[in-house]
């Protein structure tokens, strides 16, 4: 829809036509359209705009004892996923190979939306994590990293005498 509107303005070109066709500010209208489309298609877009297209998508959560990171990274070789923790920054990196056919093969690619290539995502962690108590597993295409918080950091009730 947005593309069609842009094509229309370039075709009519002249400033007079532009005013009669689009009495309001065109760019503001386009902006509004784009926002509306985004609202319509994405249930709740992320503030960082990574709701779609970012690979892997990340969910981060925590309990009083742990920090939990879920990376939605389907189709990887579990042995080749690089998970690193350095000075409170967790890095998830790796590569996903394309399954598309080589060009000379007699095949047509109709839709190509899946991510292929190297990826790297970084999460900065809270200060109270214990870098020696990290566990990671890969199941159903989701990498789950669980990091324990330091004992001393878990909230305690201090009795008043």
């Amino acid at each position: 829809m947005v593309l069609a509107l842009v094509a229309l303005t370039t075709r009519f070109g002249g400033a007079d036509m532009y005013r009669t066709l689009f009495p309001r500010d065109l760019f503001a209208e386009l902006d509004r359209l784009q926002r509306e489309m985004q609202q319509a298609f994405e249930f709740s877009p992320s503030i960082r705009g990574l709701g779609r297209g970012g690979y892997p998508a990340l969910n981060v959560g925590g309990t009083p004892q742990t920090v939990e990171i879920y990376a939605f990274a389907p189709g990887l070789d579990p042995g080749a996923i690089e998970v690193g923790l350095d000075r409170g920054v967790l890095t998830i990196a790796g590569e996903r190979k394309a399954k598309l056919p080589a060009e000379r093969e007699k095949a047509t690619v109709h839709i190509n939306e899946r991510f292929a290539g190297r990826f790297r995502r970084v999460v900065s962690l809270p200060d109270d994590i214990d870098p020696d108590a990290v566990s990671a597993d890969y199941r159903d295409g989701v990498l789950h990293v669980s990091i324990k918080r330091r004992e001393s950091a878990t909230p305690r009730r201090i009795s008043v005498e």
Binding site: S46, L50, G51, G54, A57, L58, N59, V60, G61, G62, T63, P64, T66, E68, Y70, F72, R139, V142, H144, S146
Partner: peptide, 14 residues
Amino acid sequence: LTVPQGMEASHAEV
């Protein structure tokens, strides 16, 4: 997903 009990999500893309 296997989510530990009482987890609060702080950032969710999915």
